[in-house]
Write a protein that binds this DNA or RNA. Structure first.
Length: 962
RNA sequence: GGGCGCUUAGCUCAGUUGGCUAGAGCACCGCGUUUACACCGCGGGUGUCGGGGGUUCGAGUCCCUCAGCGCCCACCA
């Protein structure tokens, strides 16, 4: 558990919060492993470590599940009401947070569970509100009509980053529009088109002037079209002219804004065509499109039909087709210079850019800095309001000065009120002639006009004017009217007693803004209604590094300002900015960038100093793991019982490099299970020495005595200390894979294959044990379970997890080098024996103290018959050592070895040639570092002497074969 | 359309600011049960470091260019 009062240096890291309803997948397993390694390693370095865990409320996903359930039950969220809806969500979420947390524990995550946070915690919610209010007051959050990405399927807006594009083949139609030919893939948006746009420099259309008008026969009759010249049009595409649909296309919207053109809604928020589409009104796009085309064809307006591929915009979550719409929403202004940063007033964009540019935050790998800049350069205002109910509700309240009495769709009204006096059928609101009634946009709640009633009467027979003169529905009774209305408004619920009242009125457009209150807590007084929308999940996630460090109890005191609250929160003061943010590159924009945005703005400091981005875990075949292909998934919860958590952790660390995807499958996990087993057996062997000494006569008593004695002892200590240093360096540079390899090779090659084998000749159990303990400590961050178990089996009373980095006994380098020499001799002896096919040959040497002292070692590890000192050599000369050493093998028996020797000599000659050339190069002598040149010279001498030995040996060999 | 990567052994990939004869794991082959481990030991590598050009004393590493593959962003009516 982290201790902010500790005098130790502090290290802090926020865990990316998994969705509370999710279950642990291999991606979680990866980040938990990497972060856990960092946390444990930093702890071992003697730091006070805070690794803060938490879960996310997963707004959109959870909300969608409940909405789907309601739909299946034949109802919807508006019918059940907000309170009941939230209750249903909570019931569904249940204790799933417990479940994900226990899975995080199963991965061995050493996070601080006493500080677990949840994005909807009261304190966190307060932070969200505080940030919203501050940004609103600074003009960084505004409400406005902007074109947004609307998902009719989920009934909400989504941010630009949540939109994905999928390539699709679609028919592309060329239509006749007055004198022009225009292309479109979306004929269903064309009903309201009354502008034709072309590039000002397009010579083909130079005789048309901006503002010219002409009559065109269009889908539903004559329209008056206006010529607009705008540079957004690409003259080389198609005919170089296009009509525009500003309500449903961003580019068109921008053109319309530039020239002050009218914008009309064609498609409703339910994804169905509006009355402007006449007979197609109420139909879905898919249903209407072929019929529209048929109508165009019948009118002779369809010129050509071709197929082309284009990108269709989808909501990343739920995969609903995105329909751009103009909607009154809340936005974060990223361009307004309202952020005080390093003594300058800058925009959010500029600050986000600056913190990376100035090096306040380091992104690993570095190349993602470019990706990040590129994203910032293209960044538009961030739409933060969502039409879902599960999440942080927008902390804004409205009060109408006069309560609106009628709800209409603004577009419908605009279409209907061509003249001023109209009739309309509605419910009986009890209005009387002369009443003035405010009219609000039923989607946005904004009042846009006022009507004065001239006549009110109840009717049973008449005609319903549906949006335009062409569409009257005659009815004789209530039932017929309802049937007619339903056809055009299938979304409306109309029961049998739907009243039929006819109002005649004057319409007066009138903008009446409601009184607005933006605050952390609800306003006092009556008549206030909170904005029904919730905030984008990423808005709250953006505060994660510091909102989790706010004192939970102090946060209940609303008399404190946010500044005071932060100042008084000990954890925040101690652990913020956090040191490392470790997460996937796929949420660099969603999350990392937004944490930078919100945190620099609110706290004046960066949220973290280093961002380490890991890649995607792919299948062994390199494919994305997908829920639709269950076999492709590596499920941690299946792997852990079968292979162990440590094996999974190691498999995930092996080969993971910053920013790169990696492949993980059974073979990799198996290999690492074997590694765990290896360490286990090493420990078992060493521990067994306590009770069953290798050689009772030469046993060194266990205890205080653990000094290095043999050359092997010095060698392993030297290796251990080099390993520890490199490990530290690798982890400091976030080179996880390299750290893993260092561990793997030290344990398997150095410790198991050499030192333990050597110790069978000259055992030093006390040192063996010390080396084992040090190794366990160094291995612990990677494989906490098995190392802890071994540690406990060794009879330790304390936890290995609580131990600091080992203090490694200093080795005598000279003695370590002697062992290295013996190792070379042993290896070469083995190679020759295997190559020649002779088992247990004798080894002869003329004069070597090293071999003299290491006789037994060489004999055993080299699998030799005898190791003898002789006057003159005999048999095959070893080349890898300066000492004069032979394997006593008859040349006749070793014929096959001659070729190998010849090859070796050739390689040696080539090497010498390379070195000679290098030294013959005057520029090399002059410009390369002196040290390097000296090294080359020394090496050349050595290599030359070795070649001499080789050639001599070769001669002898050939001679004896003759 | 704009941008970012990747291309190194049969497969998967390391290779930190250019510097010793380019490495590892897996797979594969041969030998082997020596009292930790067959989930083991020992031995086994002739790679045009994608092609071409350049900078440099020196390039897998830096620059240019071409090719193939992958990803991100924008989006064309």
């Amino acid at each position: 558990m982290a201790d902010p009062n500790s005098t130790k240096a502090h290290f802090s890291m926020a865990m990316p919060p998994p969705n509370e309803t999710g279950s642990l997948h291999v991606g979680h397993a990866l980040f938990l492993t990497l972060q856990d390694i960092l946390a444990r390693h930093e702890h071992q370095k003697g730091k006070d470590v805070l690794w803060l865990p938490g879960t996310d409320h997963a707004a959109l996903a959870t909300n969608a599940i409940i909405e789907k359930r309601l739909t299946e039950q034949g109802t919807d969220k508006h019918a059940v009401g907000r309170e009941e809806f939230i209750r249903l969500v909570k019931e569904f979420v249940g204790n799933s947070r417990e479940s994900i947390n226990s899975q995080i524990r199963a991965m061995g995550a050493s996070c601080d569970w006493s500080r677990t946070r949840y994005t909807l915690d009261e304190a966190l919610n307060r932070c969200v509100n505080e940030v919203f209010v501050k940004m609103y007051n600074d003009g960084l959050i505004y409400r406005g009509h902007r074109i947004v990405n609307w998902d009719p399927k989920l009934g909400t807006t989504v941010s630009d980053d949540e939109v994905i594009y999928k390539e699709q083949k679609a028919p592309f139609y060329t239509l006749q529009y007055g004198p022009f030919k225009i292309g479109t893939a979306r004929p269903e948006t064309k009903f309201g088109d009354k502008y034709i746009v072309m590039h000002p420099d397009d010579k083909r259309y130079k005789h048309y002037k901006h503002g010219d008008t002409f009559e065109a026969d269009w889908i539903n009759g004559q329209v008056t079209a206006t010529v607009i010249k705008d540079e957004a049009v690409d003259p080389s595409f198609g005919t170089g002219v296009m009509t525009i649909t500003p309500w449903h296309d961003r580019t068109d919207f921008e053109i319309a804004e530039r020239h002050g053109l009218e914008k009309e809604q064609i498609i409703g928020f339910d994804g169905r065509l509006l009355p402007i589409a006449h007979e197609f009104a109420g139909q879905t796009i898919e249903a209407a499109r072929p019929k529209i085309i048929a109508k165009l064809k019948a009118k002779g307006l369809l010129i050509k039909e071709a197929e082309y591929t284009h990108n269709v915009a989808l909501n990343d979550r739920g995969k609903g087709v995105i329909e751009p719409q103009i909607k009154l929403q809340w936005f974060v202004d990223v361009n307004r210079p309202a952020v005080e940063w390093k003594g300058q007033l800058r925009s959010l964009r500029e600050v986000m850019h600056a913190v990376i540019e100035d090096g306040d935050i380091k992104i690993m790998p570095k190349r993602f800095e470019k990706v990040y800049y590129h994203w910032i350069d293209n960044l538009r205002d961030w739409c933060i309001s969502r039409q879902i109910w599960w999440g942080h509700q927008v902390p804004v309240w409205y009060k109408q000065l006069q309560q609106p009495m009628m709800g209409f769709d603004q577009t419908v009204m605009n279409q209907m009120f061509k003249g001023k006096t109209k009739t309309y059928r509605q419910k009986d609101y009890g209005y009387k002639v002369g009443d003035k009634i405010l009219v609000e946009n039923s989607q946005t709640g904004v009042i846009f006009g006022e009507i004065t009633l001239k006549a009110v009467q109840k009717t049973t027979v008449g005609k319903v004017n549906l949006a335009d003169k062409a569409h009257y529905v005659t009815y004789k009774n209530q039932a017929e009217l309802i049937a007619a209305l339903k056809k055009y408004h299938p979304e409306r619920k109309m029961d049998a007693d739907y009243p039929i009242w006819v109002y005649e009125y004057d319409f007066e457009p009138k903008e009446v803004e409601p009184e607005i209150y933006v605050g952390v807590t609800p306003p006092q007084g009556r008549g206030w209604e909170q904005d029904p929308d919730t905030l984008d999940t990423w808005f709250s996630s953006a505060l994660w590094t510091w909102s989790t460090l706010v004192d939970q109890d102090l946060a209940k005191d609303y008399s404190l300002s946010l500044e005071d609250l932060l100042a008084k929160s000990v954890d925040y003061r101690t652990y913020h900015p956090t040191d490392v943010m470790e997460t996937g590159w796929d949420i660099l924009f969603f999350w990392v960038a937004r944490m930078i945005l919100a945190t620099t703005y609110i706290t004046g400091e960066v949220p973290f100093k280093t961002v380490y981005l890991h890649g995607l875990v792919r299948t062994e075949e390199g494919k994305k793991m997908s829920k639709s292909d269950l076999d492709s998934i590596v499920d941690p919860m299946e792997i852990i019982p079968e292979y162990g958590t440590d094996a999974l952790r190691l498999a995930l660390v092996a080969g993971t490099t910053a920013g790169n995807d990696q492949r993980v499958g059974k073979t990799k996990i198996l290999a690492n299970r074997n590694f765990c087993n290896k360490l286990w057996n090493i420990a078992r062997y060493i521990d067994d020495l306590r009770v069953r000494p290798v050689d009772p006569l030469r046993v060194v008593p266990l205890g205080r005595e653990m000094m290095p004695k043999s050359v092997a002892d010095h060698w392993i200590l030297d290796k251990l200390s080099i390993f520890a240093q490199r490990l530290d360096k690798a982890l400091a540079g976030f080179r996880f894979s390299e750290a893993y390899e260092l561990l793997y090779h030290f344990v398997w090659d150095d410790l198991a294959d050499w030192y333990i084998e050597a110790s069978k000749v000259q055992p030093n159990p006390a040192l063996l044990r010390k080396v084992l303990e040090d190794t366990l400590k160094l291995a612990h961050p990677f494989m906490p379970f098995i190392t802890e178990t071994i540690w406990q089996n060794l009879g330790k009373k304390s936890l290995l997890a609580a131990e600091l980095a080992p203090e490694i006994i200093k080795a005598d380098k000279a003695q370590a080098r002697q062992f290295e020499e013996l190792k070379k001799i042993i290896t070469e002896a083995r190679q020759i024996a295997t190559n020649v096919g002779v088992s247990q040959p004798a080894l002869l040497y003329t004069n070597s103290d090293i071999i003299e002292r290491g006789k037994e070692l060489v004999k055993r590890l080299g699998r030799l018959g005898e190791v003898e000192k002789t006057e003159t050599g005999r048999g095959i000369r070893l080349m890898g050592t300066k000492a004069a050493v032979w394997l006593d093998i008859d040349h006749q028996k070793a014929r096959s070895y001659l070729n190998k020797l010849i090859d070796q000599a050739k390689d040696q000659e080539a090497l010498i040639k390379t070195l000679e050339n290098r030294l013959a190069n005057k520029a090399y002598i002059a410009r390369a570092p002196k040290k390097l040149v000296e090294e080359t010279k020394t090496q050349l001498k050595e290599e030359e002497s070795r070649l001499e030995t080789m050639q001599a040996e070769l001669k002898t060999f050939e001679k004896s074969l003759r």
